[in-house]
């Protein structure tokens, strides 16, 4: 039996198809979030099923997560991304005790029990600083796309101090730095460092292993910055953007 997890997030929609036998991922996909949440998620799910030569009747259960979780009509139940990321990460890294997830508008730190359930968690409040959206805006201000940051080898770049982690004021600060002749790599590294240190104040006492997930974990050098700021090794799953959808699919499969 096939099970599906759909993570309809603030910036992108992710879906995972899982074979209930052996809990093996058989397909996954990511598309940009847009205005019609419901249609975007439906199309993504339908396209994955079609690609695998499957139809809706082959699917034994669907769990939705993410900010638009209530608008996924195929879902039997909606589960928060906190629980789903925990399940997804536990599936991939059974020894994970801390999950740092940085998504489009969220940054969260989850502390896990040995069985992968959530012990407690913290999330950013009314502010998108320190999230993917923040990094995206800064990158754009510097004439880069967030996906183009791969060339950044900030291990040998000295990060500039970025004092503000407010998206709007950071732009002003960056304009000032550019006017002063600072390089874009140094500025970007500075922003990454600011995000990483923001996470350290949120995370409290860390228990190993620490897994870094969410879309921002794909940004080059971000895990290094985080690792340095936290003073521990940080593991990034092979597809960090998908752990929420994976967890949702696992919950769907486990409910059977």
């Amino acid at each position: 039996m096939i099970f599906a997890g759909v993570d309809s997030g603030s910036r992108s929609v992710k879906a995972v198809l899982l074979d209930g036998l052996g809990m093996r991922v058989i397909d996954s996909g990511v598309v940009d979030q847009g205005v019609g949440h419901q249609a975007i998620a439906s199309q993504l799910l339908a396209s994955l099923l079609e690609r695998q030569g499957l139809s809706a009747k082959d699917v034994g259960g669907v769990v939705a997560t993410g900010y638009a979780r209530e608008s996924v009509i195929e879902a039997d139940v909606a589960v928060t991304e906190i629980t789903c990321h925990a399940r997804g990460v536990h599936h991939l890294h059974g020894d994970a005790r801390t999950v740092i997830e940085i998504g489009g508008q969220d940054s969260k730190v989850l502390h896990l029990e040995p069985d992968g359930t959530v012990r407690d968690f913290v999330m950013n409040d009314r502010c998108a600083a320190g999230t993917g959206r923040f990094l995206e805006l800064v990158a754009r201000r510097l004439g880069k796309d967030i996906h183009e940051l791969d060339g950044l080898s900030a291990l040998d770049v000295k990060p500039l101090p970025i004092s503000s982690t407010c998206v709007v004021f950071a732009e002003t600060e960056i304009i000032g730095l550019l006017a002063g002749g600072a390089g874009t790599d140094e500025i970007l590294a500075g922003v990454q460092k600011a995000i990483a240190s923001r996470l350290t104040t949120m995370s409290g006492r860390l228990r190993k292993a620490v897994v870094f997930t969410g879309g921002v974990a794909m940004v080059a050098n971000m895990s290094n910055m985080l690792s340095r700021a936290l003073g521990v090794e940080v593991v990034v799953p092979s597809q960090p953007q998908l752990t929420g959808a994976l967890g949702a699919a696992i919950i769907a499969a486990s409910a059977r």
Binding site: Y67, T80, E81, I82, D115, T117, D125, R126
Partner: peptide, 22 residues
Amino acid sequence: DSARIKVRLQAMFETVRSRNQR
């Protein structure tokens, strides 16, 4: 921030329920 508060509460309630199951 109502949606953000809701997600945190729901996540905590999920945690409570999973504890009870254990």
